[in-house]
Design a binder for these strands. Structure first.
Lengths: 219, 219
DNA sequence: AGCAAAAAGTGCGTGCACGCAAGTTTGCGT
DNA sequence: ACGCAAACTTGCGTGCACGCACTTTTTGCT
C-alpha cells in the first residue's frame, strides 16, 4: 500500500538490485575489489552489464550498498517510531546511533574491506548523505511545517555530521597538528557519531520548541 | 606569503588551472556544453587532454569552477574578517550571503547556462561542499577548540544548508505537494540562503556561548 | 481475452576517467 | 655552476558510464 504502485514490477527490480549488491560484495570479498569487473558482477547476478549500471553508477557503490542497503529507511522509521514525548534531538541521535552500531554483523569482514580500500571508503562516506531525504520526511512530520526548509536543513546537517564522524572514523587522522594536538585515536563509531551530533542539538531543540509554540493548533 | 610554498611551480599550476577553467567556460558558452569535448578544452588551454583531468575530474566541474572559482577562500576570509563582537552566526550568514550575492557579474550568462543544463546544475550544487573546509578553519579559529569536531560539524552543516538553498533555487520545485502547499516560487538566492541558514543559528550561538564560557582567557 | 502503452532489460557506440610508465621542467644542495 | 631529486606533464591502454534505439515483459483498459 505504501510503496506498491504496480507490484510485480517493483518486486523484480528489488530482486535484481539485491542480486547485484550481493554479487558485487561476494566477488569483492573473494577476489579483492580490484579484480572484479563490472561484467563479472552482472554475470553473477544474471543480467547484462548494461543493466548493471542502470542500478549503480559505480562499482564501489554496488559493493558498499550491500552493507548499507536499507539504512536510510531504517533511520527514518526509527525516528518516526520514537514517542512524541522524547526530545527530537534524542530521537534523532538514538535512531542514528542505533543504525550505525555494529550488530555483530555478518558484514564484519566486509566493513574491514571497505575501510581498507580508499575507493570504497569514499563510496562509504557518500552513503551518509543517503539518509538525508528519509530523515527530512521524518523530522518534517514531527515538526509539522515549522518553516519550508527547516526539516530539510536539519536533516542535511545531521547527515553532514554523520559524514564527519565517518571521516574521522575511517581516516588515519593525518591532518595538520592542531592547537591542542590531542584527538581521539579512533574511538567507537557510536561515540564518535554522538559527539559530532552534539553540536546540532541546540538547533534541533530550537526547531522543536518553535514548532511547539508556533503552531499548537494551526498550520 | 600565505600559499607560496615553492613559488614558480605553484604559480604555473594556478595559471594552468585558470586557463582550463576559462577555456571550458568560454567554449561551453560558445557552442553549448554538449558540443565541447575535453580535447577541445585542453587544446584551448594549451595542455594535453591527460593533463586536463589531472586538474578536473569532469567536464562540468571545469565549467562550473570558472564561476565559483575562489568562493571557498573568500567565504573563509569574510568570516575571519568580521570583528569578534559580531555574533558568530551573523558573521557566517553575512559572509556567505555576500559571496552568493550576484555582483552584477560578467558571469551572468554563465549562470544562466548552468542553471539550465541538468548536468551543470549538479556540478554547481557540489560546489557548496567546497566551502566546508575553509569555513571550518575560520570557525575553529573563532571558537578556539570547543570540541574536536564542533567547528567541522558546524561548517559542514552550513555547507549543507547552502546546498539546500541552491537546490531550492535551481530546481523547478517539483517535489511532493506538502501540507501547506505554499512554497516560495524561487525567491532571491540571498534570501533563500538566509532562510536555510536560519535553523542553524541556535547551534552556532550555543557553540559560541560554550566557547566563551568554557575558555574565557585561553586562545 | 486481446491490445496498446509503459517500463525494464539489452546491444552498441562514444567519450571519459584514471593507472602506469616514460619524458621534461623546476628547485635545491654543495 | 652543476647535477640530483622531486614535481608536473604526457602518451598509452583499459575499463567504465551513459545516450540511443530495439526487444521483451508487465500493466491497465476495453
Amino acid at each position: 500500500m505504501t510503496t506498491r504502485r504496480t507490484g510485480l514490477r517493483e518486486q523484480k527490480k528489488r530482486a535484481t538490485r539485491e542480486a547485484l549488491r550481493e554479487a558485487a560484495l561476494r566477488l569483492a570479498l573473494e577476489r579483492g575489489p580490484d579484480n572484479v569487473r563490472v561484467d563479472d558482477i552482472a554475470e553473477a547476478a544474471g543480467v547484462s552489464p548494461r543493466t548493471y549500471n542502470n542500478y549503480f553508477s559505480s562499482r564501489e557503490q554496488a559493493i558498499v550498498a550491500a552493507v548499507t542497503a536499507e539504512r536510510e529507511s531504517r533511520v527514518a522509521e526509527a525516528v518516526a517510531a520514537q514517542p512524541d514525548q522524547v526530545r527530537l534531538a534524542d530521537a534523532v541521535v538514538d535512531a542514528i546511533v542505533e543504525q550505525y552500531t555494529d550488530p555483530g554483523e555478518p558484514h564484519r569482514d566486509a566493513m574491514l574491506l571497505i575501510t581498507t580500500r580508499p575507493a570504497l571508503r569514499e563510496a562509504f562516506l557518500d552513503t551518509a548523505a543517503a539518509i538525508e531525504h528519509p530523515l527530512a520526511d521524518a523530522i518534517s512530520q514531527r515538526l509539522g511545517d515549522s518553516g519550508p526548509h527547516t526539516a530539510r536543513v536539519l536533516a542535511a546537517s545531521v547527515a553532514a555530521a554523520v559524514r564527519v564522524a565517518l571521516e574521522q572514523w575511517v581516516r588515519p587522522v593525518s591532518t595538520s597538528p592542531a592547537a591542542s594536538g590531542l584527538v581521539v585515536p579512533s574511538g567507537s563509531l557510536p561515540d564518535l557519531i554522538r559527539s559530532t551530533l552534539a553540536p546540532l542539538t541546540p538547533a534541533l531543540d530550537a526547531a522543536e520548541e518553535r514548532a511547539r509554540r508556533g503552531q499548537p493548533d494551526s498550520v
